[in-house]
């Protein structure tokens, strides 16, 4: 019975997604009272199946239960998440369009792509972070290193000879690597792959020596022992990998690279609605069952206030902006 219910629900969601979106959502006066009165659209600015999509869906399900309305997940991938984010920034600010905001869409994308037409700070009403996934320095098993210091020594001894992989030129994994080179004064050759999965495979096979991989992409390989994790880019250790030190513990000061994910709405969404959503998102992420699903997917459940969220973006725009500038020169 439960299954039939669930399937019927998803069929409904499918038809809603197919029908509602192209027609344009009916323009309703923004009313905080009685919100939400109809289904909410959650733009996931990446394709189905990526870690952002999975995190979005993990949160959307319980959030819709709490709000009492369906949340229709709309995957609008493209150009590193900037296509979907741009659409979200231009949507009606009535609380019925939300988007998943990440390091890619709100920091790296606007920094790397000239064509981005939104301001990641001014054009959004930030709701709350949902999770943070560290970048993990992983190395091929045959590379004769046991610690981050070994990697630095090796790179200093053989400048330019080590290869580090990434999910693409200008991707967050690439910039996390460049940040490491800048912080340690080392030189390595960057080898771009088409995706996190391809880059991870390349470390496993030894085609590249190391990778600053996003946790969801490398966690299972680390656990099964096919690649070695040396450090995580977050300020605190990851509960998923309690034995792996942070970059700072490993001796690289000022290094912080993580991919955070949160929810945001277009700027101008009524404050009461943002407050309500903030409250509900915090409740959802604090639910142990949701937290476990997030953790299994490599994302550490994290929350913050709308103001803190905005500050985080402003800070990182500066940090990443500096890295990208040094690459261009």
């Amino acid at each position: 019975m439960r299954l039939r219910h669930a399937l019927a629900g998803s069929a409904l969601a499918l038809s809603a997604a197919l029908l509602a979106a192209p027609l344009g959502l009916a323009v309703a006066p923004a009313q905080a009272q009685g919100y939400p009165e109809r289904e909410i659209r959650l733009i996931v600015p990446f394709g189905a199946g990526g870690s952002t999509d999975i995190v979005g869906r993990i949160v959307a399900q319980p959030l819709s239960e709490r709000l009492g309305r369906p949340i229709v997940v709309e995957n609008r991938g493209g150009a590193g998440g900037t296509v979907g984010t741009q659409a979200a920034s231009q949507a009606e600010a009535d609380g019925y369009t939300l988007t998943v905001a990440t390091t890619s869409t709100h920091v790296v994308g606007p920094t790397v792509h000239d064509t981005v037409e939104y301001d990641p700070v001014a054009d959004f009403a930030h709701i709350s972070l949902v999770g943070e996934t560290p970048y993990v320095l992983v190395v091929n098993l045959d590379l004769p290193v046991e610690s981050v210091q070994d990697v630095i020594d090796l790179a200093l001894e053989r400048p330019g000879e080590l290869n580090f992989g990434s999910a693409g030129q200008g991707s967050t994994t690439h910039l996390a690597g460049e940040m490491f080179l800048a912080a340690t004064g080392t030189e390595m050759l960057h080898i771009p792959y088409g995706s996190n999965a391809d880059a991870t495979t390349a470390v496993m096979s030894g085609e590249v020596d190391l990778l600053f991989g996003s946790m969801p992409a490398v966690l299972s390989q680390i656990r099964s022992g096919t690649i070695k994790a040396l450090a995580v880019g977050t300020v605190t250790r990851s509960p998923q990998l309690p034995d792996v030190p942070t970059m700072q513990e490993a001796g690289v000061a000022d290094y912080r690279a993580s991919l955070w994910l949160g929810l945001a709405a277009p700027a101008g969404t009524p404050q009461e609605i943002i407050d309500r959503l903030h409250e509900e998102v915090v409740a959802v992420v604090s639910d142990p069952a949701v937290a476990e699903q997030l953790a299994n997917n490599g994302a550490e459940p994290t929350i913050n206030s709308p103001a803190e969220f905005r500050e985080l973006i402003e800070q990182e725009l500066v940090t990443y902006g500096r890295i990208v500038e040094s690459l261009d020169n």
Partner: peptide, 26 residues
């Protein structure tokens, strides 16, 4: 290997990981 061949496989991999299954040689 835990390496998805295409987007559909990536989604399946995600589903496995959410259930705490670790794809890989083990």
């Amino acid at each position: 290997l835990g390496v998805p061949g295409d987007a559909t496989m990536a989604l399946m991999l995600g589903a496995m990981m959410i259930h705490g299954l670790v794809p890989g040689p083990q």
